[in-house]
Simulated assay, not measured.
Amino acid sequence: MSGREEPRWLAPAPLWSDGTVGTGSDLALSPWITELENESFFDEFLAILGGTGGRSPADLAGTGPKLSGEDGSFRLFTPTSHFYNLVTASLVCHRPGIPDHTPRPRLGERAFFVIRLIGDGAESAFVPGPPGAGSWVPATAGVLTPGERELPLHPVPVASFAPSGTAAATLGMAAGRPSTRTVLYGYIPVPFRDADSGDGPAHVIHAVLARDPCPPVFSAPSHPFRLAGQYPPVIPTVRTGPRPADPPDPPEGPTP
Score class of each variant (00 low, 15 high):
10 L>A: 04
12 P>L: 07
13 A>C: 09
16 W>E: 14
16 W>N: 05
18 D>G: 14
19 G>F: 11
19 G>S: 14
23 T>H: 07
25 S>H: 15
30 S>K: 14
32 W>M: 06
33 I>M: 04
34 T>P: 00
36 L>V: 06
37 E>F: 06
37 E>K: 07
38 N>V: 01
42 F>M: 11
42 F>K: 10
43 D>N: 09
46 L>P: 00
51 G>L: 04
52 T>D: 05
54 G>H: 04
54 G>F: 03
54 G>L: 06
55 R>H: 10
63 T>W: 00
67 L>R: 13
70 E>R: 15
71 D>Y: 08
74 F>G: 06
74 F>N: 03
81 S>R: 03
81 S>V: 07
81 S>W: 01
89 A>N: 12
89 A>Q: 11
89 A>W: 09
90 S>G: 15
95 R>V: 10
102 T>M: 08
103 P>R: 06
105 P>Y: 00
105 P>I: 00
108 G>Y: 05
109 E>I: 09
112 F>L: 13
119 G>A: 11
120 D>M: 12
132 G>Y: 06
133 A>Y: 04
140 T>V: 14
144 L>Y: 02
145 T>Y: 01
146 P>D: 11
149 R>E: 15
157 P>R: 12
157 P>M: 04
165 G>T: 13
165 G>D: 12
168 A>G: 08
169 A>L: 04
172 G>F: 12
175 A>C: 01
178 P>W: 03
179 S>V: 02
180 T>Q: 13
184 L>M: 12
184 L>S: 09
184 L>A: 08
188 I>P: 02
194 D>N: 13
195 A>N: 05
198 G>S: 10
199 D>S: 12
204 V>C: 04
208 V>M: 07
211 R>A: 11
213 P>A: 09
215 P>F: 07
215 P>R: 01
217 V>S: 07
219 S>Q: 09
223 H>D: 07
224 P>N: 03
232 P>K: 11
232 P>Q: 11
235 I>T: 12
237 T>G: 03
240 T>A: 08
243 R>N: 07
244 P>Q: 03
245 A>I: 02
246 D>P: 00
251 P>T: 11
255 T>P: 00
